[in-house]
Nucleic acid binder design. Structure first.
Lengths: 176, 176
DNA sequence: CCACCCATGTAACTAGTTACATGATTTC
DNA sequence: GAAATCATGTAACTAGTTACATGGGTGG
């Protein structure tokens, strides 16, 4: 499993509380991976048992607040995992199943839902493009920045692809 | 959950044994959704309990072979589910996490793995394009065929996007 | 003082994966 | 007669979701 590795990566970038991690996860890795706080706390507890991370109480913070930091063993594990091959993920999309159902049993009125999704994709694209302009519009970028930009570009290309596809789908579904 | 709905859709298209379903799933819906035979048999058993499908022994087939057929209640459920909104899926890709780790802790030699994936995407694209030519190259397509083509086009666009992205990634990672 | 955000967790359930198990039929 | 494919399943585990629960701090 690799939610642990995703969290480790976040913690290597910046030590955080579970709550902060959940927030940050939503905004960075969360672009292509969502995790609930319940899952995050569970994995943090496991990683602490394994010695990959260490938590300490935060003085002056809210009651119970703990700061998690990646340990040496965690960083080594991250390197080991990163070098391991992994299969490209599938794009498991319920809409494709619904379209097959529509083709098999007759019109199900999916256009409205595709229209709704189109707007979601357009919004996401705008969000990404804002980040692009803010963080990556300089002419020269460090290797690190180029790699972070690469991740963003995967998101941008994905949303653009979905937008084009949705428009194609609407044209077909809305033919009289 | 909707593996049940994906299986139902397959069964509406054509009554099948669990084994055939697993095979067909791999080749159609499986383009964007994989399920093991264990999962499939489990869900078929549940759906039979719910009355969505019905199985019967196949005369003259192999010992134990059963044919599953979608029932009226199953088709109604499929319609109900199809009309329900659902969120677009995320593209949970471990490679994005690995790239972030690379940016955070230094070069991890990911180029080789991206090269390997590039070839997988190119192969998948060729497979899709073969289907495209075989099934959808006629000038006029029925509504049903247009919808099935639409699903294929989502796969084609996805693979093309991944190929372009992988090439971009390689250019960045292989800079000296 | 009320709503909202920060902050952490437990419990129960559902979905997906991996390992193990069995045996018949077809093809070479 | 051996290997591949057809055909079905159980068991155990891992991952992800949903519901419930608690309480402190901040802003209006």
């Amino acid at each position: 499993m690799s939610l642990q590795h995703a969290l480790l990566t976040s913690l290597v970038e910046k030590p955080s509380s579970g709550y902060e991690l959940a927030r940050r996860f939503d905004k960075s890795i969360g672009f292509f991976w969502h995790a609930t706080h319940q899952q995050i706390y569970r994995e943090l507890a496991r990683m602490e048992q394994q010695g990959w991370v260490k938590s300490s109480a935060v003085e002056g913070g809210r009651a119970g607040k703990r700061l998690f930091e990646a340990q040496g063993a965690g960083q080594e594990e991250l390197q080991r995992w990163a070098r391991e091959p992994s299969e490209p993920s599938e794009l498991r999309d319920e809409m494709m199943v619904k379209l097959r159902a529509d083709a098999a049993i007759g019109p199900l009125g999916l256009a409205q839902e595709i229209e709704r999704r189109l707007q979601l994709h357009q919004q996401k694209l705008r969000d990404y493009q804002e980040i692009e302009e803010r963080d990556f519009s300089r002419t020269t970028l460090s290797r690190e920045a180029q790699i972070r930009y690469l991740i963003l570009k995967a998101g941008i290309a994905f949303e653009q692809g979905r937008i084009a596809w949705s428009q194609d789908a609407l044209a077909i579904l809305l033919q009289e």
